[in-house]
Write a protein that binds this DNA or RNA. Structure first.
Length: 405
RNA sequence: GGGGGAGUUCCCGAGUGGCCAAAGGGGGCAGACUGUAAAUCUGUUGUCUACGACUUCGAUGGUUCGAAUCCGUCCUCCCCCA
């Protein structure tokens, strides 16, 4: 099976600048492709994961990857798919994030052979001369055309300032630079990047008369139509300090039925026929597929040890209520003689953000301590309870262990 | 630069002097049902030392016994004209 067939069978390809040429390129390992990541936060999140997977598929087929960190473009802010202005970030913040991104991306893609394969566009964007840039690059962009681009549509209604409007030129210029310096001939990105990618291919054609290509990756949407990896508490991060491996595992363990098979195809490297097999499972059997999905991803992102631990913890909790080593834990220094207030403990463990919410939760019967439902908001956990680790349960699936040092 | 309009709680959006911690919807959380799924139904959704107190309606300064609501200044955004 060729990479192209693999990518399309997994539903990863959204659109290309020309199927035949792109197919030919990647199948023969002739693509020097780049994917950009803007360091807008201090960690990659699940949304970045899909491009990384595509990168790996392409690399395995002998194509050369370039990971571009957008240290420069982040100074501008991509308006695509946004309804409002991004918060401006300081240069220091961005530089800090760049470092973290580099580390995380390095975990997924093998850069050992060629150090230059990870680049930062701050290196060339930050020192651009305005007039020069306008004359060299700006002339090649038609404002009329840009305004009709899909990526600006939402913003045409709510407002778009000149800074953001230039994002497209920046990204186009990136591709142009990479094309010249590294022979980069394929840009990949989320489907929302389509207009930005075209900006690059067209710039290269106009300035150099050469063809460069583009491929977009279908956005990872849940069956509900929401963006994957966004929860009420924020994104699901790849950094274990921001989203614990256990929570990460649970996130994927809890996907909707309709999402399991597509996610397995898109996000994991499990052989397609194996996934095909699972797609025949029905009803509660699908839970096994979800376990697999969660396990595979946890192993990919963290490690197989972390995945084992998370799976074991989940099994202990949901299977038979056993105490587990591997669930989120809070360690207290000591327990006062008159015990610890339940509400205080809920806030302390961050199971609830405020005491008001803790109070409501308890009143509504959503809290269990060591398997026993507690509905008394004044209840205190006596010191002798802490001889063994105490298991708090919030709702149906949030567990937290509390122990005394 | 001129004219018009708008900024409300997580989001959308009511509220135009006291009955406003602020309608309604969405989202979230919890309960029932279940398969750690979906759908459905119910409750709940500012904080706290909790039948009371405190802080919130872009910012700030006023008017008033009393302001999200009225007035001044400032900031931000949108629309029309240039």
């Amino acid at each position: 099976m060729t990479v192209w067939d693999e990518l399309t069978a997994r539903g990863l390809v959204a659109q290309t600048t020309g199927e035949d040429t792109v197919k030919e390129l990647v199948n023969n390992g002739k693509a020097v492709f780049y994917i950009g990541f803007d360091p807008t936060a201090d960690s990659l999140h699940v949304g970045h994961f899909l491009p990384l997977v595509v990168m790996r598929h392409l690399q395995k087929a002998g194509n050369k990857p370039i990971a571009l960190i957008g240290g420069g473009t982040t100074m501008v802010g991509d308006p695509s798919g946004r309804t409002d202005l991004r918060q401006m970030m300081t240069q220091d913040r961005i530089a800090e994030n760049v470092g973290k991104f580099k580390k995380q991306i390095g975990k997924f893609i093998d850069f050992t052979d060629d150090k230059d394969m990870m680049v930062n566009n701050a290196d060339w964007l930050l020192n651009l001369n305005y007039i020069e840039f306008l004359r060299d690059i700006g002339v090649h962009f038609s404002v009329n055309r840009m305004l009709t681009a899909e990526c600006f549509r939402a913003r045409m209604e709510r407002g778009l300032n000149f800074l953001e409007f230039n994002y497209m030129l920046m990204q186009g210029y990136d591709y142009f630079r990479l094309h010249q310096e590294y022979g980069c001939n394929l840009e990949c990105g989320g489907d929302d990047q389509w207009s930005n990618i075209l900006a690059g291919t067209e710039l290269i054609r106009r300035k150099l008369g050469k063809d460069a290509h583009g491929l977009t990756i279908s956005l990872l949407l849940t069956s509900e139509g929401t963006k994957m990896g966004k929860t009420a508490k924020g994104a699901v991060w790849l950094d274990p300090d921001k989203t614990s491996p256990f929570d990460f595992y649970q996130y994927f363990r809890n996907v909707a039925d309709a999402d399991v098979i597509p996610f397995l195809k898109k996000l994991t490297f499990l052989p397609l026929d194996e996934i095909e097999e699972m797609s025949r499972w029905e009803g509660s059997d699908l839970n096994r597929a979800k376990e697999r999905l969660a396990y595979e991803l946890c192993a990919l992102v963290h490690s197989s040890e972390a995945a084992d631990a998370a799976a074991e913890a989940a099994k202990a909790l949901f299977g038979g209520g056993g105490v587990s080593e591997n669930m989120p834990t809070t360690t207290l220094d000591e327990c006062p003689d008159d015990g610890v207030g339940l509400l205080d403990l809920l806030v302390l463990t961050r199971l609830t953000p405020s005491k008001g919410e803790a109070r409501r939760l308890v009143t509504q019967g959503g809290v269990e301590v060591n398997g026993q439902r507690i509905e008394d908001i004044a209840w205190r956990l006596p010191p002798e309870l802490f001889v063994e680790p105490v298991i708090l349960k919030k709702g149906k699936k949030t567990y937290h262990k509390v122990e005394i040092q």
